[in-house]
Write a protein that binds this DNA or RNA. Structure first.
Length: 931
RNA sequence: GCGGGUGUGGUGGAAUUGGUAGACACGCUAGAUUUAGGAUCUAGUGCCGCGAGGCGUGGGAGUUCGAGUCUCCCCACCCGCACCA
């Protein structure tokens, strides 16, 4: 029999499906292992060879753990709300649910033929009402919660109401933007609208007037992580700042826990760093500066309270609320001009003009807390309203931005930390001792900081504070294809939709565009009003419902939990399922979600834990970012302005040419283009003149780029599978290089892996002869096998799949050379191989006479005793490590012996008094020392 | 500017974590075989040199009997954040 992947792969895929081989069950006495892939957005283009990379790796891990006896949860689903389906709907009028459905069917078919061991009975789709009812439910829990800083956790809003009734705002330690005070009596007397107004400052899901990233082209707001350098991440449209009433989530309440949790998880350093950066914790102090003749104070945040005596002026953000009150009549006009200029400048312009120093004097002064000195107050847009207090104490001698500002506007400098030349540049290093600083004089910076905070606190002029860069997450989107936010409005006051009315299903609309008046698409729905008893009703019978929908990351912030209990009708995840599966042990996906999905998910899990719905504080114990598989584009040179195509080897000055992407399927592995096919493919080039190489071939230029339809460099896994089979594709993708690394797809090497599988097959079959014997294996054969098992076991533990594939190749080659067809060797070999090449392993396992699946056969253990060299080598110990090496005859080379002895004398020192029995050398070098 | 990462043959990449650098695979060269098929098998393949030999892990120093691996200083590229006080 020949190796025919085209026959055996569909056979086993059907078998697995029928027998539900990969169904995960909760067995309390069996250990669990939860391995999860980031679920895909089902795009219209289908999968390319880059998508399965992570799925293959996770599948290997899943199958390996089944061999180890774990209950493995390895699910898959779809992140099926999103912009592309909506934009397609806008263009064609096709309901996004329909396109999504079709795309999912295609994805499923592609995934199935890869032989993944997903438990499809647990599939989830974020756009499925049975799923998003719980996304809406979690939103309602956020709406009904506040953050109690005294208990370091979120609590039901009812505990807050109890506090208000009993104590008013007195003694409350809440994470809030509310700044007023009230008594229990005042609370009792307040109207529902007034009460809600206050509660909005406490709720973890709240509405506020805030500056948002508005993308006019997409007609929606975007979260900070969806904006890259002033352009939308999706589509690359310009983004401007706009004030709007918006739903937000109070993720900032969790800033400290999100930061602290990073130390408890096994994630790549780069992601941990990116999140640290994004959270942006900085320790420092809040300092109050009195304003002569006024009640208000200017509050600033600084990380360098030690430089307090170096302050020579104050700077407020142009939007700072105190600016208008402070500005004197004399400067009112210039300040107003400056404010208007600053407001006009978009985020992007500001970023482009970072070096440009602008500002305006307000005419007002603030008082230094420790000196009888008045500090001029300026406004400037280098101070951001959104960070800290929107105001800074300027220390031009020790902060480069303040320094530039002082130099531009001719403000004084005062050095208070020794070192540097402050006339040339700010001395911002945290080194040196304090001077001209009263009670701080002579202290090094590290000691001056706590001392300054102490003094500020004693005087009531400030306090130590930790500040975060993290902003609350804007949660509303002016789009159709997302989860409706389950809120209705009674006279402008938001109320939650009743839980029993969930899911609040997306209504049908005639078009998927915003309305002429700029309202979100949901405003087009005929029935989109709500009655607390009846649910969704026509207009006139209830209250208006919220028109915005949730952002793309809502469903993905908790989907890992739903897999644990996907069919639960009464809870997002049942207690038993949650307690058994706990958290994801291994999570695989791209690094592009570092500051989006991966932060929001951590936030939601912490919240759900606080409210007692789940047990794990962190969703993902270990995270691996698989690299991207890049396309290997083929470019054809065409002379500028002429219809002449020139082979790459004949091009002298590339400047004179345009480059046209050719479909990579028209190019062979030697970079030769099938010119005739290319002309048929691009009929505008049918009549082009061709200048070929001397040998008549036509060569293209290769370039590594992201895979994309428009670059014609997409390689479809279906084609690879049709030619070589899924097992070859799986092993080849693993063989390409380390999982985490990005690498270009190159089909050239695939024959090596395919040959390996055929060679494996030939250990069992020679044409139609079954070769397997019951003979006793030889030492050599056992050594090959156990070396393999050891290497693969180690590699699996380290997720080093490329080296594991190499180990298989070596072992199979050795066994072929030994003509080893012995059952005692081949059986464990197959089990070891089965996570990597499951179809082939299953098929041969069956032919070995087993009726059950190979899936649960225990993974073989290796034995060191088989691994020892039988000739010319023996174990030695050196520096406490055991190793095996060859013995060499010292008499071979006189020089080597001399050097060996020389080395021996030096080595003897740190070997102590243990006698050295033998020195092992190769000519000129000592290799090892035997004690 | 700050932070993270990477640098090894013609190519993808190994190196038991300080012990003969280049495993494995692709590619290439030569040969064998076959009713040219993108098949199979054998040998060779880091660079320079006819050779003995020399040189080699981005560059330079250092520690060590011994460095791709550890330390310091540079260089290049990739990624993230960025007037964050």
């Amino acid at each position: 029999m020949e190796y025919r992947p085209g026959d055996i792969e569909p056979k086993w895929q059907a078998h697995w499906r029928k027998k539900e081989t990969f169904r995960a069950e909760e067995k309390p006495d069996v250990d669990k292992y939860y391995v999860l892939d980031m679920f895909p957005y089902p795009s219209g283009a289908g999968l390319h060879v880059g998508h399965p990379l992570g799925y293959i790796a996770s599948d290997i891990v899943a199958r390996y753990h089944r061999h180890l006896g774990y209950q493995v949860l390895h699910p898959m689903g779809y992140d099926s709300f999103g912009l592309p389906a909506e934009q397609y709907a806008i263009q064609t009028g096709q309901h996004p649910a329909k396109t999504t459905e079709a795309n999912i069917a295609r994805y499923r078919q592609q995934l199935d033929q890869m032989g993944f061991s997903f438990d499809w009975s647990r599939e989830v789709r974020t756009s499925d009402p049975n799923f998003y009812r719980w996304t809406q439910w979690i939103f309602l829990q956020l709406f009904e919660s506040w953050y109690n800083c005294a208990h370091h956790r979120a609590e039901s809003i009812s505990t807050l109401l109890t506090h208000f009734r009993r104590h008013g705002s007195e003694g409350l330690q809440a994470f809030t933007t509310f700044e007023g005070q009230f008594t229990p009596q005042e609370w009792a007397a307040a109207s529902p609208a007034e009460k809600e107004e206050i509660l909005q400052h406490f709720r973890l899901a709240y509405r506020s007037e805030s500056t948002v990233n508005w993308c006019p082209a997409l007609g929606t707001v975007l979260a900070n992580d969806e904006v890259k350098e002033g352009y939308s991440e999706r589509g690359g449209h310009p983004v401007i700042q706009k004030k709007m009433m918006q739903w937000s989530l109070r993720v900032t309440a969790y800033a400290d826990r999100l930061e602290a949790g990073l130390n408890t998880i096994d994630w790549p350093a780069s992601i941990v760093e990116a999140q640290r950066n994004w959270i942006g914790r900085s320790e420092g102090a809040r300092v109050y500066f009195d304003l002569p003749g006024r009640e208000e104070k200017i509050e600033v945040f600084t990380t360098r309270p030690d430089t307090l005596f170096g302050v020579t002026f104050m700077v407020l953000a142009p939007e700072h609320p105190l600016v208008d009150q402070l500005t004197t009549a004399e400067y009112a006009a210039t300040v107003k001009d400056y404010q208007e200029m600053a407001a006009r400048r978009s985020e992007r312009e500001r970023m482009a003009e970072v070096k440009k120093v602008t500002g305006a004097f307000t005419g007002a002064y603030a008082r230094h807390p420790f000196k009888d000195e008045l500090l001029p107050i300026w406004i400037a847009d280098y101070v951001l309203a959104s960070y800290g207090t929107g105001a800074v104490m300027a220390v031009p001698a020790h902060d480069s931005r303040d320094w530039t500002f002082a130099k531009t506007f001719d403000l004084p400098l005062r050095q208070v930390v020794a070192g540097g030349d402050i006339e040339k540049a700010a001395h911002d290093a945290q080194e040196g001792k304090l001077e001209q600083s009263d009670f701080l004089n002579g202290l090094p910076v590290s000691q001056a900081i706590p001392k300054a905070i102490e003094a500020l606190e004693a005087k009531g002029a400030g306090r130590g504070e930790v500040n975060y860069r993290l902003r609350d997450a804007i949660f509303g989107r002016q789009r159709y294809w997302g989860e409706p936010i389950p809120i209705y409005y009674d006279d402008g006051v938001p109320h939650p939709v009743r839980e029993t009315h969930l899911p609040l299903e997306l209504p049908d609309v005639d078009q998927y565009l915003p309305t002429e008046t700029g309202e979100p698409p949901l405003a087009r729905a005929e029935r989109w009003h709500y009655h607390p008893d009846k649910g969704v009703v026509p207009p006139g019978e209830g209250y208006p419902l919220e028109l915005t929908t949730m952002p793309g990351w809502a469903g993905s912030s908790w989907y890992d939990l739903r897999y644990m209990d996907p069919h639960n009708r009464t809870e997002p995840v049942g207690r038993g399922a949650q307690q058994y599966w706990q958290q994801v042990d291994l999570y695989l996906g791209g690094s592009e979600h570092a500051t989006g999905h991966l932060i929001y998910t951590r936030f939601w899990h912490k919240f759900l834990k606080d409210r007692g719905y789940i047990e794990a504080e962190e969703p993902f114990k270990k995270l691996i970012n698989q690299g991207m598989i890049l396309g290997n584009s083929a470019l054809v040179y065409r002379r500028k302005g002429e219809n002449v195509l020139v082979s790459a080897g004949q091009v002298e000055d590339p400047q004179q040419y345009d480059r046209i992407h050719a479909d990579v399927s028209l190019v062979n592995t030697s970079d030769e283009l099938d010119v005739a096919a290319f002309r048929r493919w691009r009929d505008d080039l049918a009549g082009a003149e061709i200048i070929a190489e001397k040998d008549g071939s036509f060569k293209v230029l290769r370039e590594v780029e992201k895979m994309s339809k428009s670059k014609y460099n997409v390689v479809n896994p279906d084609d690879i599978i049709a030619q070589y089979g899924a097992d070859t594709l799986r092993m080849y993708e693993m063989f390409l290089g380390p999982l985490e690394q990005s690498k270009p797809w190159n089909t050239a090497g695939i024959s090596g892996v395919h040959n390996f599988l055929r060679k494996t097959w030939r250990l069992f079959w020679q044409e139609d002869t079954w070769l397997v014997t019951e003979e006793k294996p030889s030492e050599k054969e056992l050594k090959s096998l156990h070396q393999l098992i050891k290497k693969v076991t180690q590699d699996l533990k380290q997720y080093s799949f490329n080296t594991a594939v190499s180990a298989f190749m070596i072992a199979v080659k050795e066994l072929s050379d030994l003509k080893c067809h012995k059952r005692a060797i081949l059986e464990p070999l197959l089990v070891t191989l089965s996570p990597f090449a499951p179809h082939l392993s299953e098929e041969l396992w069956e032919q070995l006479g087993y009726s059950g699946s190979i899936e649960r056969v225990p993974f073989p253990a290796y034995e060191e005793s088989y691994l020892q060299e039988s000739t010319h080598a023996y174990p030695i110990s050196f520096n406490g490590k055991v190793r095996f090496t060859h013995e060499l005859d010292l008499s071979l080379d006189k020089k080597a012996v001399e050097e060996a002895v020389l080395g021996l004398e030096k080595t003897q020192k740190y070997l102590g008094d243990k006698p050295v029995r033998k020195v092992i050398v190769v000519p000129g070098k000592i290799v090892n020392i035997v004690q």
